[in-house]
Design a protein around this nucleic acid. Structure first.
Lengths: 148, 148
DNA sequence: GTGCATGCAAAGGCTTTGCATACCA
DNA sequence: TGGTATGCAAAGCCTTTGCATGCAC
């Protein structure tokens, strides 16, 4: 629990502000989440956390994730495979995803020209953008090589 | 059942090719789907079809939708609200969506520059694109006006 | 007639909720 | 001490599957 001090601080502040309690479980889940370092499903996060606290429950993981989203430490991602993924949001700039339909790998990318064009589109439709997601589905480089 | 002759033809051919049967229900569901003219959920499609055939079942709607996707008459869309939406694919060029988080309205748009940049991104990562989705979430013009 | 299709209901998978107990403040 | 948090299990929601009956071919 040495790194991610800022994130802990944000979570602590959020909990205090909302009259919520600073429990071991909540910080254990946050820590597992941040240490995973990539998109993670609630199930995997549950399992990861369980290796450190054998009694943790599924419901606690889901409830904690909701809090992490509220204080913008986490972000929800739905790749349309029936289970929501979560990824760290703090200190993690906006980006889009290439999703390999073969191995399930996610590649993050950011293209400022696309971002700018998105804003232009919104202007044209007088649409007030709050967030946006771009998902490109296909086959990644490594899987293409394997197929040959 | 006068319009959409081409779509009926495509479905018929698909069914025959795969040794499937041309049932009333299947064509009734296809017709309700095409006549709806916009993104539709399985539940709404079920209800729409039910007004024409009081005995139609949920499972038949889902099973038929799977076939419509296979023969590319329909396309699945997941806006991350827990239920999948379906939209006509035949004669309906690729486009992206602005999704109003207030009223739920979907606005379709297409920006060829964005499309081109997406291909460039894929090239850079040697990623073989199969499909892509861009969803912009926010508040639509009409809802902004109402808020004032 | 044969075999796929249907409709019903039950089961699945993921997520949320209810409730008694535990624990932070 | 008082009230929120937890863990368990049950319930919810959307979708799929199993099965007996029905219907297309």
């Amino acid at each position: 629990m040495k790194q991610f001090l800022k994130e802990y601080g944000i979570f602590e502040e959020y909990l205090k502000k909302n009259g919520l309690k600073l429990t071991q479980q909540r910080f254990l889940i946050l820590d597992s989440f941040l240490n995973y370092g990539s998109h993670i499903s609630a199930e995997v996060l549950f399992k990861k956390t369980r290796t450190r606290d054998a009694k943790i429950g599924f419901a606690t993981v889901y409830r904690t994730l909701k809090h992490l989203i509220k204080c913008q430490l986490a972000r929800e991602l739905d790749f349309g495979n029936g289970r929501v993924q979560y990824e760290p949001e703090y200190n993690h700039a906006h980006h889009d995803h290439l999703i390999c339909e073969n191995c399930g790998r996610y590649i993050e990318f950011l293209n400022s020209q696309i971002e700018e064009l998105q804003e232009q589109v919104c202007k044209k439709y007088r649409f007030q953008m709050r967030s946006h997601r771009m998902h490109i589905y296909g086959i990644c480089d490594q899987c293409q090589k394997k197929e040959r």
